[in-house]
C-alpha cells in the first residue's frame, strides 16, 4: 500500500502570535514550529497501516526550507521518504493544487492529512484534493481500518458518529483517536538523516493576497452579578454585550 501523508509546518500552540510589515505578515522571530497535531495523527496511522499491511509512507509538505526540521521528524517517526514543494503555502486552493499535482504522478492508495491545519484552520484542503483528483474525500475521520481494497472508517458528525466504507483510493482528513500519537525513537531519529527528502518547485500560483491580519480583542474581566440582581444581568446582556 502506498500512502501519502500531507503535513503542515505550524507554530507551536504556545507561540506568541504577532505580525510585521503593516500586519500583513506573521512574525516568525523566536517562534518554535511543530508538525500540525492533526497531521501527526494522520502520519501515526499511516505508519501503523504500513506495519500491518506493508508498503510505503511518503510525507509531503508545501512549504519553505524552514519546514525541513519538521519533515525530518516525520521521517524519524517512520515515513520512508519525503517531498517538499518549495513555496510559501499562501492559500488552501494553491496547497491543494500542489498536493494533487504530486499525487497524480504516483498511484497512492491513501492520501492522509489532518482535518485542518492549526494556523489557518481552513479545513478544506482534503476536499479540494479529492475533487482535483476525482476521488472521494472524507473528514474528519477518527477511525480507519483497511480490509482488502476497502477502507472502513468512523467519521465524526454533528452530535454523533457515522460508520462508512469506501473503496481506495481515498483522501482523508484525520483527527484523534485515529492512532496513538508517536514519539520518534532513537533508531528512527538516526535513520532519518539518510532517508530521501526531495525538493520540487510549485505549479501555478496563489490566488489570494493577505491584506491585513488582526488579533482578537483581549477578553474583558469577568463581571460577577449576585443572583438577587438578575435585572442588572439582563440589562448588561442587552445593553453592554448586546446579545439579547
Amino acid at each position: 500500500m502506498k500512502i501519502l501523508v500531507c503535513i503542515t509546518n505550524v507554530p507551536d500552540t504556545t507561540a506568541k502570535i504577532s505580525f510585521i510589515d503593516g500586519d500583513t505578515k506573521f512574525n516568525k522571530t523566536g517562534v518554535q514550529y511543530i508538525c500540525g497535531p492533526y497531521d501527526d495523527y494522520a502520519l501515526s496511522r499511516a505508519v501503523e497501516l504500513k506495519e500491518q499491511h506493508g508498503g510505503t509512507v511518503t510525507v509531503l509538505n508545501v512549504g519553505e526550507a524552514e519546514s525541513e526540521q519538521v519533515i525530518r521528524k516525520c521521517l524519524a517517526i517512520g515515513a520512508d521518504d519525503a517531498i517538499r514543494v518549495n513555496t510559501e503555502p499562501t492559500d488552501s486552493y494553491f496547497v491543494a493544487e500542489q498536493i494533487a499535482h504530486i499525487a497524480s504522478q504516483e498511484n497512492y492508495d491513501l492520501i492522509l492529512m489532518g482535518r485542518e491545519s492549526i494556523d489557518f484552520n481552513s479545513g478544506v484542503v482534503h476536499g479540494l484534493v479529492g475533487e482535483m483528483l476525482g476521488i472521494p474525500s472524507l473528514s474528519p475521520v477518527m477511525k480507519l481500518e483497511i480490509d482488502g481494497g476497502v477502507a472502513k472508517m468512523t467519521r465524526e458528525i454533528e452530535g454523533g458518529k457515522e460508520d462508512v466504507e469506501a473503496s481506495l483510493p481515498l483522501v482523508l482528513g484525520c483527527q484523534e483517536p485515529i492512532a496513538e500519537w508517536k514519539i520518534p525513537n532513537m533508531r528512527g531519529i538516526m535513520s532519518a538523516r539518510t532517508k530521501p527528502l526531495k525538493v520540487v518547485e510549485p505549479v501555478g500560483s496563489g490566488l489570494t493576497i493577505t491584506e491585513k491580519y488582526a488579533l482578537p480583542a483581549p477578553k474583558g474581566a469577568v463581571k460577577m452579578i449576585p443572583a438577587e440582581e438578575a435585572e442588572k444581568l439582563i440589562d448588561l446582556l442587552k445593553n453592554e454585550a448586546k446579545v439579547l
Binding site: K73, A76, W181, P184, N185, I189, A192, R193
Partner: peptide, 17 residues
C-alpha cells in the same frame, strides 16, 4: 544540532506523555 535536539525532544515528550 537538529538531530541532537530531536533526541532531547523525544525524552521531553516521553516524560510529558
Amino acid at each position: 544540532n537538529e538531530e541532537q535536539q530531536m533526541i532531547a525532544q523525544t525524552c521531553v515528550d516521553f516524560l510529558r506523555t
